[in-house]
Design a protein around this nucleic acid. Structure first.
Length: 112
DNA sequence: TGTGTGACGGGCG
DNA sequence: TCGCCCGCCACAC
């Protein structure tokens, strides 16, 4: 990708998230693992917060490995994230993505 | 400069 | 099977 990928961990996260197909979702750990820092899944979530100000970053497609919309609160509205997902055909119930394993998009495999 | 926290994940009891 | 603890890195106080 970039020659300075190690220097910009967050920017790397943005790039991967940006590549997530519409109607698909992934987990923080999957992105972190793809970046070679599976232990630092938290940092991915942190990058998401920063990406909040960025446009073109479908942060709503990035959720935890439970398939739970843990960061919905950061979208301004409690149902904004869910609405965005439903708009892409993703079924969400009780802040939880249905068929998460089926909609799961692994960058390490799909983006390989 | 040091301590604590955080949109997580995996391991252990 | 459920619950608790540790790790990892960046940022705020």
């Amino acid at each position: 990708m970039k020659t300075d990928e190690k220097k910009n961990f967050f920017e790397n996260v943005y790039e991967v998230v940006r590549l997530i197909p519409e109607g698909r979702v992934t987990s923080y750990g999957a992105i972190a693992a793809y970046l070679g820092a599976k232990r630092s899944a938290r940092m991915v979530g942190w990058a998401m917060i920063s990406s909040h100000a960025q446009h073109g970053i479908p942060a709503h497609r990035v959720i935890n490995r439970n398939g739970l919309l843990t960061g919905k609160h950061f979208f301004g509205a409690p149902d904004a994230m869910q609405k965005l997902l439903e708009a892409e055909g993703i079924v969400v119930a009780d802040d939880q993505v249905q068929d998460f394993d089926r909609l799961f998009w692994d960058p390490a495999k799909e983006l390989l």
